[in-house]
């Protein structure tokens, strides 16, 4: 149907690659090859700071914020206990009229009191 004549013409009407273009492409091939042969630069990961290590250990800044909030809340409740908490403590017997009997009290230095007692008896 005559299309072959158009295809033949298209095949013949194809310009050859210029010498300059071929040289440029060869130079590019050699340049990329040189890049491939070059060892990749060794990049050592920077050692994380102590703060970063601490944050990493506890779970990051959100965990740190939670910890700080819990600490402040505990301090606040200890310094100014809400009335409801005191009543609850009395009702369960944790707080009595005698401070030494209060269940929540913990003697951090029992040995100190003991040594005082011993020194008084001598």
């Amino acid at each position: 149907m005559g299309l072959d004549a158009f295809f033949d013409a298209a095949r013949r009407d194809t310009p050859a690659l210029s010498t300059q273009a071929l040289d440029r492409m060869t130079a590019q091939a050699l340049a990329v090859q040189a890049d491939l042969a070059a060892p990749a630069p060794v990049t050592r990961a920077a050692r994380p700071s102590r703060l970063a290590q601490l944050l990493g250990a506890i779970g990051g800044w959100p965990a740190m914020a939670t910890l700080a909030t819990a600490g402040v809340a505990g301090l606040w409740i200890g310094a100014v206990p809400p009335a409801g908490l005191v009543n609850l403590a009395v009702s369960v017997g944790a707080v009595t009229g005698v401070a030494e009997d209060d269940a929540y009290l913990v003697d951090p230095l029992p040995g100190y009191t003991l040594s005082l007692d011993l020194s008084e008896t001598q």
């Binding site: 194809t14 690659l17 273009a21 492409m25 060869t26 090859q33 491939l36 042969a37």
Partner: peptide, 27 residues
């Protein structure tokens, strides 16, 4: 051979393949 750094392979491959690719791109 090209990947192993042989420059002759780079030259032969370019000379062999570039005209084929260029002809197809032109068409």
């Amino acid at each position: 051979l090209y990947a192993n750094g042989d420059p002759s392979a780079a030259r032969i491959l370019t000379g062999r393949l570039a005209p084929i690719v260029q002809a197809h791109a032109w068409r």
